[in-house]
Each structure stands twice: as C-alpha cells, then as structure tokens.
Design a protein around this nucleic acid. Structure first.
Lengths: 197, 197
DNA sequence: GGCATTCTAGAATGTGCATTCTAAATGCCG
DNA sequence: CGGCATTTAGAATGCACATTCTAGAATGCC
C-alpha cells in the first residue's frame, strides 16, 4: 500500500444499496453512486471491475444478513417463525429490505458480473433454497403444490405484506409485524425438535 | 387517409405487452417492439408520440381487463371472490398478467408520458382504489392496519402467489387457482347483499 | 528527500437506445 | 391518370451512461 484510500469499498456498496432501495435498480448509475459517496466516478473502478460487480457484491452482503435472520427458524422447522423473522429483519434494516426484497437478483445485476460473483450469488440462493426444501421435506411437503404453499407462507406472503411499504426505504409502520399472523393461513404447529436440522 | 396502414396500433401494443411480460420493462425497446411487429422503428412514431406513451396505452388496455375482472366481486363485498377473480384472470391472460402484476406503473412507464395518458393511468388506479376503499368502509375496516389487511387479501396475496410463475408469461400451473383458498387467512363471509355497492 | 505505487479527479470514448429526419412507396380522390 | 397526404423504411442524431484514459497527488520505503 502506498497511498491511503480516501473512500472505502463499503462507502460505494452502501451508496449503491441506498440508491437502489430508494429509486430502483436503474437509480444506481456509476455517476450516482460516485456522487452519493462523494467520490469521482473513476474511483469506483479501482475497487470494482464493473457496475455489475459492485451491485453483485452489495447483493451478497445484504443477502447474508437476510439469510442469517431467516435460516435459524427454518432449520428448527418453524415456518411461522421464519416468516416473522423476515419481517423483523426488514423492520430493523429497511434500506436493506428495500434493496433486496422487491427485486429479483437478475433485475439488479445486469448480464455480466464476473464469474466468481455470479457463482457466489447462485450459491447464496441455493443455500437458502436448500434449507427451505429441507424444511419442506421434513414437513412432508413433496408435491410441487405443497412446496409452493410453504414458499408462499415463508417468503412470498411476508414480502407481499412488506412490499407496499418498502418503496423508498422508509421505516415500516410499527403495526406491520403484528399484521403478519393475521394474513397467514392456519398452519400446523412447528415441527417437533426431533425434526430440526 | 391516403395510404392504408400496414401495421395497426394494436400490433405495437401487443408486441410491447409480450416483450415486457417475457423480459421485463427494459425489454421493450423501440427497436425490439418494431422487430416483434415486423415494422421499421420509425413507424411507431406515426402512432405514438413516445415510448412512454406506447407503454402507457398498453398499461391502460391491460388494466381495463384486470379491473373488469376484479371490480364486480369487490362491489358485491366479496373479498375472497375478488382474489379468486384476480387469479382466474391471470390464468386466462398470462401475458397480460405477466405484464401488469409484477410491475409498478412507474417502473413500466418512464418519467414523461403525455399528460393525458398520465392522468388516464392515475384515473384507472383511482377507480380501482376507490372501489377497494369502498369495500373496506362497508366491511368496517377504517384503521390503516385493517385496510392493509384487506389490501393483502384482495391484491397482494394473490399476486404473491402468482409472482413466481408470472416471469416469462408462460401458462400457470393448473393447480395454482386451487392453492389460493389455502393461502388466504380465514375471512368473515361475504357482506350481505344489502351492503353491495 | 527521491521514487514506485496506488490513489483521486474528472475528461474522453464507445455503446445502446429514443427520437428525428429523409426518401421512396402507396392508394384514395378528383 | 395525376396529385398528395400518409405511410413505410431505415439511416442520422443526440443523449445518457458504463468504461477507459490522462494527469496529478499522496504515502510509505529506501
């Protein structure tokens, strides 16, 4: 190291997450990220090989936090707990939630991130999906239709509940977490511990 | 009229809907719409003043069909019926559903459609929202939280159920409509006819 | 202090796309 | 048949943005 960096990787990642949370994927232009971080646009390319790489790394960071919140209850076989954990995480990290939840990865990350990042994103998705499918298997849901039911309960219903309030990354209404149990269908009680993973 | 038109408005509107249904908002470039319709790109501008105007008119057309499906049960005070009608409409018109449901109008239509179209879009949204709020009032839901509950039941839960299958505009799995009652929370029975609108 | 290295700073380049422009073709009206 | 408004057809333009390039500045090591 010869010259100390004035801007950190994190400054750009945080700026990109905030811009996308507030303005959608196309709000994170290189110029906008640089402006938000107070840096010249060229500096970003000393840290990230491309815009796609920047956004992919931001996605990985945010998704890590999301997974850490949702995986434990899922592994315990507690679907309602996983749904609740998703909402709690979103309330605690509204910007992260507004970045991650309303967008498919392919809408955020363009066609050509570097191969290692593309694989890391796929691996992160598969890790979560594997845990979810493991839960389904232990819950006796094997038919496609039953897996779809649980996917809705654990992921899609909570995200749908949050969605109208995620735009802009504003704080969520305080009553929102309390609404989750009311919108979920009746569920069998959590699996016994013997089926935890 | 002196020369007969070889391409109709509808050809371009249909092409735009199909492209967005299959590839998202940014798939409907002027060149792509023209190619899909078999026309030169310039011809589009004899029909539509701008890309935003084209997409806005497509949105209005599709939204009309959507509203026609959902409004009657909503006016009858039948929330579960409205949710079911939404899913039935999506199954009957998968391309329209994949165009309309996963995207906010502002994600489809850029910043500057002509004023009349902007107002028409707002009016269409308000017509549906007014009917929905009327339903809420008659159902005794006045608190913001209660309105959010019904919005989830009528719109967000069905859309969330469809969402994973909408990408690409492929036909929906035949068992999907049957899953809707299983994912909705228990609801009070439909309002008596005396409260219909 | 001189120097290699890595950074900041922002201008230059190239690409993709919406929009506009020019030319040629078409078919109804008189 | 000939005039002409309207359309096809596609090339030219302009803009926004990702990426690259050039210049200069900072810092640790000798």
């Amino acid at each position: 190291m010869v010259r100390t960096a004035k801007f950190s990787d994190d400054a750009f990642l945080t700026a990109a997450v905030g811009l996308i949370a507030r303005g959608g994927p196309q709000a994170a232009t290189i110029a906008a990220v640089a402006r938000a971080a107070g840096a010249p646009s060229g500096s970003i390319y000393h840290r990230f090989p491309s815009r796609d790489a920047l956004v992919a790394r931001a996605w990985l960071t945010v998704h890590d936090g999301f997974r850490a919140a949702v995986l434990p209850p899922l592994r315990r076989g507690d679907a309602a707990g996983a749904a609740a954990a998703l909402v709690t995480w979103a309330a605690a990290e509204p910007l992260h939630a507004a970045f991650l939840l309303p967008h498919e990865p392919e809408d955020l990350i363009g066609g050509s991130p570097p191969d290692d990042l593309r694989q890391a994103v796929a691996a992160a998705q598969e890790a979560l999906d594997a845990a979810f499918l493991g839960f389904c298997r232990r819950a006796g849901a094997t038919a496609e239709k039953d897996v779809a039911f649980w996917r809705h309960v654990v992921f899609d219903a909570p995200v749908a509940l949050l969605r109208p309030y995620l735009r802009g990354g504003a704080p969520l209404p305080p009553w929102l977490p309390g609404l989750l149990p009311r919108v979920l269908p009746p569920l069998p009680s959590p699996l016994p511990d013997s089926l935890a993973c």
